[in-house]
């Protein structure tokens, strides 16, 4: 009797001890967690602060340009020749727009189809073998792409369209599309792969063909993720500088007619990169280059926000990255 009681008591004590130690370790965990949270909070705050400071600084540097040139003259002026005091940025933005628009269209057409092909048509092993190479493509530095465009793409564009010089908006759009296609392929293929198998089966069981299933169920389900991949690609395209500087032709004029992809253009990023070094600080030209920068910033911000709102608005159950 007594012995059993004793062991019962022992058990009770042990239980208490266990409870206590688990309580302590729980407290510790909470404190660890709090520490982590505080650290993360500080890091997050500081990154927001840095972003904020950059924005303020660029705005400040750009402000005199807007004041002196006038916002409308700056945005819509058709002539950019700082040597003559003309700061019309329209050709630069239009050049950027042409290149980015063209490359995104090309890259989406190639990238989304490639992603569908990888996931839906290739055997799994083959697809898994190919994917790392596509990701490798994304890591090639843009200067290399510039060389590739200069040596390989530009002469072919010149030959094909019978142009004296192959450095055109089209050349830049083509090379840039190669640069952003891996982003689209790798994210889109992941999203397409994440579409539950049961949707495909339900569709097939209704008598849909494979392609009908892809178009009717898989792509709509994966759409927000695909849009997100396109937005990322857009971000890279609009910020791209060196490659487009090398192959776009560097002529700060509006193409004529305005849609002529075979004219050379000078995109805004390339303008900043070439002219910043030769400009005295705090001159009007210097301020104008910052104004170009802030415009690029605003464009990216607006596009990203729009995409974000779109992705958030899409209903539940739809596949995200």
């Amino acid at each position: 009797m007594l012995k059993r009681d004793e062991s019962k008591f022992q058990k009770f004590l042990n239980g208490l001890k266990d409870n206590f130690s688990s309580f302590i370790s729980k407290m510790r965990q909470i404190r660890e967690k709090e520490k982590e949270e505080i650290a993360l909070f500080i890091l997050a705050c500081s990154s927001i602060l840095i972003l904020f400071l950059i924005t303020v600084f660029v705005f400040q540097a750009a402000l005199p340009a807007f004041k002196e040139i006038g916002v409308l003259d700056f945005l819509f002026g058709k002539s950019w020749s700082p040597g003559y005091g003309r700061y019309g940025a329209a050709p630069l933005f239009f050049g950027s727009f042409m290149i980015v628009f063209g490359s995104v269209i090309l890259a989406v057409a190639i990238g989304v189809f490639a992603a569908i092909f990888l996931v839906e048509y290739l055997p799994r092993g083959t697809a898994d073998f190919i994917k790392p190479f596509i990701e490798l493509l994304a890591g090639i530095p843009s200067i290399i792409w510039g060389f590739f465009g200069l040596v390989f793409v530009a002469p072919r564009v010149a030959d094909f369209f019978d142009l004296p010089v192959g450095r055109t908006a089209l050349t830049a759009a083509i090379v840039l599309s190669f640069m952003i296609v891996p982003t689209i392929v790798s994210i889109s293929s992941e999203v397409i792969e994440a579409v539950p198998q049961q949707y495909r089966r339900a569709s097939m069981a209704l008598g849909a063909t494979k392609w009908q299933t892809i178009r009717g169920v898989v792509l709509p389900t994966a759409k927000p993720g695909i849009v997100a991949s396109i937005m990322l690609a857009f971000g890279r395209a609009i910020g791209e500088t060196i490659a487009v500087l090398m192959i776009a032709g560097s002529v700060p004029l509006l193409p004529s007619p305005f849609y002529d992809y075979l004219d050379p253009v000078l995109p805004a990023t390339a303008t900043i990169a070439t002219e910043m070094g030769e400009t005295p600080a705090y001159s009007l030209h210097w301020h104008a280059l910052f104004a170009l920068g802030i415009m690029l910033f605003i464009i990216t911000f607006v596009v990203n926000t729009a995409a974000d709102i779109y992705v958030r608005r899409t209903k539940r159950g739809v596949i995200m990255v």
Partner: peptide, 14 residues
């Protein structure tokens, strides 16, 4: 089309 199917887990499309 002639032989319809209902699955174990309800699987409506999104």
């Amino acid at each position: 089309k002639r032989i319809g199917m209902v699955f174990q887990k309800p699987n409506p499309f999104p």
